[in-house]
Design a protein around this nucleic acid. Structure first.
Length: 556
RNA sequence: GCCCCAUUCGUCUAGUGGACCAGGACGUAGCCCUCUCAAGGCUAAAACAGGGGUUCGAAUCCCCUAUGGGGCACCA
């Protein structure tokens, strides 16, 4: 008796596609619920574009009471990276984009789901069922070419100036008889399974794409590999099988898949499965020597999502920036809904631009400043500390040493109507607030000396004298300022710049100089928050100590 | 080389045949406020890639060119 090619190829397959379709039944969800998935390779590296894609899926599925799945595309055994899955999940958790279903256990959090396995390498038996089905229907066949033969074929095609690929007349094994196949199988020749694409293919592939609208692409006529020689599927086949069985109804992915879309549509049709809706999104790019290009994992450190975390951008700022790229209406929505969680923003893929967007760090900074401006002092303290523990341990130790004081510091000019917007990320903390902590203040003086304006030392000393006496019993803000003005004038400083400019020789300087002396004495910086608030935050003791030291310096 | 996709200020974009001498945001510049910054307010410079059509009328529709992006793997 002779065995069919399908039996020869897949002797251990007992189930049919119908069995699997029944096993992974349609989900019991609201009519318009979106089921989507994030499907990275397990390299551990998350591209900022990955976060961008995951964010879209997360938003849409959350807003429709759908399901957001993490599926790991580990079908390329050459690229395995240990711990990759864990790193991916941790990154997603850091951004708050936690999948509803997936292959992971992190600490107490165990996430599985009824539509797994979620690791493609564990789904081999499932792919075989569908591959066998195609072989039985004559829509797929084993192909025995070696990579050398394929390379030679491509060379020949290049020489003849015809399009490269395994198709029609070039597809040598397309017309192998069952007997021939049986022989070569018996001889133990390695093989792959290829789809039998119509050739020539005049039919156009009709596609529903939420970002680009309706499209018609030339139908596929290449006999693409669906199962590799190790029986692991290629992306194309896994996409059709997995997204069907997981009942995914919206495929969000990069537009690099556009060119293989006709193949995907063809696969669904061959398997007699409904074609899902797609959202092909454009990549994030950067300006590179006058031209735009996609952010490259190899060349651009800023392609890694972790890059922004290291800099200390709050996850929310990064996500809000991404939202801004996805739908520019987001920024108007944000103005109208300053308090609302960004997850409530009605994301609309049809309003997304189909072309490449450049990542704009200035814009990120601006958004991040707005985000941080909504934090209260404790939140700033906590977030800055969390960041510093990982990326700037010295700073962490310093701000942690006196928690109450640090919170007071972060409360300067914060929480009112117009909060300071001087932090775009946590690595800005040192520069903007460092001087508040004695250690960093002393360090600054040690490194660059005092940076007073050009005023005689004895005048600085006399300013110190006055402030030291005056600061002991700090009056209200207006009085304080008026006292400073009065002192300044009595001490021989012009009341304002204009007056000073008119007759520079008549004055020691101007009021602003006095205040600058005050400021530098306390911070050794030219740029600081409001002086009055600074004094309050520093406290009398610390303030006087700094002033005394300056006085000594000025006198000596 | 072939195929697909895209193209509005520096950047992200609004714009779906007349409401556009093209609007907003970031960035830039100036002014105001002011003890320095930050913020805030006001103002300014700044774009429909080019060429042909279609139409009474085009940023918007069609064609060509240019430029950019992506693909042409037993990688995703």
């Amino acid at each position: 008796m002779t065995m069919s090619t399908a039996d020869l190829l897949f002797p251990d397959v007992t189930r049919t596609p119908a069995d699997l379709l029944a096993e992974y039944a349609p989900r019991d969800l609201p009519e318009d619920a979106i089921v989507s998935r994030f499907a990275p390779s397990p390299t551990g590296f998350i591209h900022i574009g990955g976060i961008y894609t995951a964010l879209i899926s997360w938003m849409l599925t959350n807003q429709t009471d759908g399901v957001y799945i993490l599926r790991i595309e580990d079908t390329d055994q050459k690229r395995q990276i240990e711990e990759g899955v864990r790193q991916i999940v941790e990154s997603l958790m850091h951004f708050g984009l936690v999948p509803d279903e997936g292959p992971y256990t992190i600490g107490p959090v165990e996430v599985r789901g009824d539509y797994g396995p979620y690791l493609q390498s564990e789904r081999v038996d499932i792919y075989k069922v569908f591959a066998r089905d195609l072989v039985e229907k004559g829509l797929a066949y084993p192909s025995f070419q070696t990579s050398e033969e394929l390379e030679a074929m491509r060379e020949a095609q290049k020489a003849q100036k015809v399009k490269p690929g395994y198709y029609g007349p070039w597809a040598k094994d397309r017309e192998l008889t069952e007997e021939q196949i049986a022989e070569r199988l018996a001889a133990g020749e390695p093989f792959v399974i290829r789809v039998r694409a119509p050739y020539p293919n005049k039919r156009k592939a009709a596609i529903k794409d939420v970002v680009r609208g309706k499209m018609e692409l030339p139908g596929n006529d290449k006999d693409m590999v669906i199962l590799k020689s190790d029986f692991l599927p290629t992306y194309h086949f896994a996409h059709a099988v997995d997204d069907t069985l997981m009942r995914v109804n919206l495929i969000v992915r990069g537009d690099e898949w556009l060119s293989t879309l006709p193949l995907h549509v063809q696969l669904f049709e061959m398997l007699d499965l409904p074609v899902p809706t797609y959202a092909h999104i454009s990549p994030i790019g950067k300006q590179d020597e006058g031209s735009k290009r996609k952010l490259s994992k190899r060349k651009d450190p800023e392609a890694a999502a972790s890059y922004y975390l290291e800099k200390g951008y709050p996850a929310r700022a990064i996500l809000e920036y991404c939202l801004n790229l996805i739908n520019s209406q987001f920024e108007n929505w944000r103005v109208e809904n300053p308090e609302a969680p960004f997850a409530e923003f009605p994301l609309d893929l049809s309003r997304m631009s189909p072309s490449l967007a450049l990542f704009d760090l200035d814009k990120l900074d601006s958004i991040s400043k707005d985000v941080i401006a909504t934090y209260n002092a404790q939140e700033v303290y906590q977030a800055a500390l969390d960041w510093a523990r990982e990326y700037d341990p010295d700073l962490a130790a310093i701000i942690e040493a006196d928690r109450d004081y640090s919170i007071t510091v972060f409360g300067v000019e914060r929480g009112g109507e117009a909060p300071r917007k001087d932090l775009a990320n946590w690595s800005d903390v040192r520069e903007a607030y460092g001087f508040f902590w004695d250690e960093l203040y002393a360090q600054s003086i040690a490194e660059q000396g005092y940076i007073f304006p050009d005023v005689a030392p004895e005048d600085i000393a006399s300013v110190m004298d006055f402030i030291i006496g005056h600061v002991q019993d700090l009056p209200d803000r207006d009085t304080w300022l008026q006292d400073m003005r009065d002192f300044s004038e009595e001490a021989g400083f012009a009341p304002n710049r204009k007056t000073y400019k008119k007759d520079p020789d008549a004055y020691k300087g101007q009021f602003g100089d006095v205040m600058m002396i005050y400021r530098v004495a306390l911070a050794n910086q030219r740029y600081t928050p409001d002086l009055y608030e600074m004094v309050q935050a520093l406290g009398i003791e610390r303030t006087v100590a700094r002033l005394e030291r300056v006085k000594q310096w000025a006198e000596g």
